[in-house]
Amino acid sequence: MPVPRLARAVGALVLAAGLTAGCGSGSDEPSAPTGATRVFTADNGDITIPAAPKRVIATGYAVPALLEAGAPLVGISTWRRGLPMMTPQTRAAYDTLAKVAGESAAETNYEAIAQAEPDLIVIGVPKPVLADIELERLRAIAPVVALGPSLPSGWRELSRRQADAAGALATFDTVRDAYRNKTRGIAAKYAGVLPRLRCAHLGAYGEIANGNFQREFNGSWGTNVAQDLGADYYGQVKVKGGGSKEVSEYPSIEELPSAFGEAEVITYTIAADGSTPGGVRYVLDSPLWKGLSAVKAGRVYPLRYTEATTYGSAMATADAVDKALEPLLNS
């Protein structure tokens, strides 16, 4: 969808009255949740939400987070990019739930959301994309909490806030603690090796059409779980660009020697199915890559599942990193 609308509160109030009347709830104050409420601080301000929501709608990044946290979901947006990361149980839940929106915020089916009769809507899209959503119309259906991603490594706090809003912190914290235990264990294994090495990461979002590659530093998609295991991705971006460009940059392929020349270990992103993405293959095939000292030393490791945005899926990432880096222990 197009342009965000100049929505006004008056229309929304009229709407709310009519809607819930149609649904037969008979409440006099339909947009305010029945039962105990609390005030929650989200990207879109301080929102009054039910203390224990019963029927939750999730979109965007909130979909995998709330599925995993076992929130009482009644409808979700599609989330194809997260599918390869889902466990079979999560995937089964994803498949059974009603889809009320598509991949992009523009593809939101407001009538389907209204029909699901939610008491809370959690929107997990980045702030600029919020403009694509009729927040007023959604607010007429149920309280709307917008919690979107900012930095790539910020999924830890983000998914916790989303789970908190949906009243699903208990399960969430169990999974989080399992992740922390796991990474602590793996980090201990590598304590003598990994922290002393200068690491660099080649990301998957380089554009062949621009002849560039993506270098990820600490705190980016490809690096944040490996950091939990003790890896340090030295250096920082030349020009900070906000969002993911605070922690990753896109130099020309000609600059490969100056970017990765000093790295002792290079990790690179591969797809969940183990295939090498085009932008990465382009770099691996370049004659300049073959001249790098880390490549000559054979210290180049592919990492799977770097797109994790939940603790549950990040456990798979941690295992994958562990498996990939194993040769370091024997050297």
């Binding site: 969808m1 197009p2 929505a7 523009a106 593809e107 939101t108 407001y110 694509d132």
Partner: peptide
């Protein structure tokens, strides 16, 4: 991705306002 969504116009979500 949001901008690409925008590049294909839509009447979805239009209200009186």
């Amino acid at each position: 991705i949001a901008a690409v969504g925008w590049s294909a116009g839509s009447l979805n979500g239009l209200g009186w306002d």
